[in-house]
Nucleic acid binder design. Structure first.
Lengths: 146, 146
DNA sequence: CTTGACTCTCTACTATAGTACAGGGTGTAC
DNA sequence: GTACACCCTGTACTATAGTAGAGAGTCAAG
């Protein structure tokens, strides 16, 4: 393990473009562990995990900025705990909110599949039922910094 | 109910920009139910629900294109059921996948909060633990049509 | 019948997240 | 020692999802 990969290998392993990795590097999201004298980037196993995390979190509706926040959440001698705890709590609420919303979305999808089997037409859009009420407005950090 | 709203009222109700509504109209995502002779757009209650749905689904990582697909899922005389069922099933899988991933993400967040309380430093990023394995590659329709 | 808030269309600009390409260097296989 | 696949930097382009502004019309209150 901890085998070193060139940029193309890492990109292939996760199914992203090489340019994307260089882009993430510029954003300080994903650093190569080492550079060869030639300048070639070398990535370790940690980078592979990190990259997968990024892609997963993105698919869940987190921006790259938020992904960075998630990845920087840790308790250390530098980071004050109260601060970390507050951020983690906020993220957890966001995550739990998303789970609730997805469950709400799954319900009419299942119903729809059932209706199909039963051959009952659903005249209006049944998916709309999923989130009838307003949800908590996203406490997104994008706006705060822009 | 079914009270009519002008574009500004609808925008305010959901907390979006007026321009965004006109943008969604161009994308065929959200149509006003009626136009006054003056050209003013009038929206009904259905539009309010639809708009909330759009914003919610977006926060869950669905693109506007995917949101449209979700909203068009219904069983009717025109839509063949097998087709609808296949699409609904695919979406359901996607939703269940997201739920799983979010649960995985919630776990280390909770642990982190606990660690904080206990005053234990977590030297490496504990969040990374959430998705160690590769997830199903997104069967996204964006690439298929582009 | 005017004032002020609201709306219309159209065009252009922005942010985020990539993606492509030019021009050049690296590394290994033959 | 030269192909060929791969990598480098830098710059420019793209798609998605908005946002802003100009110039003009609408509408209710006074």
């Amino acid at each position: 393990m901890a085998k070193e990969m060139k940029i193309g290998e890492l990109a292939d392993a996760v199914g992203v473009n090489i340019q994307t990795l260089r882009y993430y590097e510029r954003l300080n999201l994903l650093q190569p562990s080492l550079r060869k004298p030639s300048g070639y980037r070398l990535y370790d196993d940690e980078a592979l995990k990190r990259l997968r995390f990024i892609k997963n979190a993105q698919a869940l509706g987190f921006t790259l900025h938020e992904v960075a926040e998630l990845l920087n959440l840790r308790v250390s001698s530098i980071a004050r705990c109260g601060d970390v705890q507050r951020k983690a709590q906020a993220k957890l609420l966001q995550v739990e909110d998303k789970i609730r919303a997805l469950r709400a979305l799954a319900r009419p999808l299942r119903a729809l599949i059932q209706h199909c089997r039963a051959g009952q037409p659903t005249d209006k859009c049944p998916i709309l039922k999923s989130f009838e009420q307003e949800r908590r407005r996203n406490n997104d950090t994008r706006k705060a910094t822009g």
